[in-house]
């Protein structure tokens, strides 16, 4: 009687939602079944519920950049303030979360690309094209390149990402945050002539 009551549209709904749920199950696994679902899930419609586990995010990432000048000199390294501190209002209203998550996802994605390239025997330093053309790198590059020029005679920009362990720093009672481990230092990317800054000053630390 239940299935009679469903009707044709209900049976379609049952099949669709049932299939969606069933394929969600292997997507929680980190074995070849999970990898297979991951390959057919480019839009993220099949959910993955394993947040902060099994490896939780316990590092801070520092993003710095500097401009290279026409005379061959380099400007001092400047840090990008992409992760402002927590405020109580964020429990209700947190639009800045999008930028923070975008950059975190880009940095984590970069690490995955590097791991994959090393696994496939590619020399990242000699043949960086695979890295430079990856989406995470392009996203980070877009962020860095959209920041205002450090000098009117800047012709190129390079950036670096550092991984820092804030818990270890606190345990060691260091007086200032150490830069941590270098994850990536980019090559110089030519700056386009821009008439005005495209991103506000708030991102510069």
């Amino acid at each position: 009687m239940f299935f009679n009551n469903l009707g044709l549209s209900g049976l379609f709904i049952l099949a669709f939602l049932g299939g969606w749920f069933l394929i969600s199950i292997p997507n929680q696994l980190t074995n070849r079944f999970g990898a297979w679902v991951n390959r057919i899930n480019p839009y993220g419609f099949v959910p993955k519920w394993t947040f902060f586990a099994p490896v939780p995010g316990t590092y801070n990432y520092r993003l710095i950049f500097r401009d290279l000048l026409a005379d061959g000199l380099a400007q001092p390294w400047e840090e990008v303030d992409w992760c402002p501190g927590r405020r109580w209002i964020h429990a209700l209203w947190h639009p800045r979360r999008l930028t923070t998550k975008l950059i975190m996802d880009s940095i984590n994605g970069l690490a995955e690309v590097l791991i994959l390239m090393v696994k496939e025997g590619m020399d990242v330093e000699r043949n960086p094209q695979g890295l430079i053309l990856s989406t995470p790198y392009v996203l980070l590059l877009n962020l860095v390149m959209s920041l205002p020029l450090q000098s009117p005679s800047s012709i190129a920009r390079e950036f670096a990402v550092f991984q820092q362990d804030p818990f270890a720093d606190r345990q060691a009672s260091v007086e200032f945050a150490r830069m941590g481990k270098l994850v990536l230092c980019s090559s110089a990317h030519e700056l386009r002539r821009q008439s005005s800054p495209q991103v506000s000053e708030e991102m510069r630390a």
């Binding site: 902060f52 099994p54 939780p56 995010g57 316990t58 590092y59 801070n60 923070t100 975190m104 818990f167």
Partner: peptide, 19 residues
């Protein structure tokens, strides 16, 4: 996850600036 079962995950996550 060893870090979760050791009980260190929470304090380490809360030490980060992102989360």
């Amino acid at each position: 996850s060893p870090i979760w079962m050791r009980g260190d995950a929470l304090v380490r996550i809360l030490a980060t600036t992102a989360f």
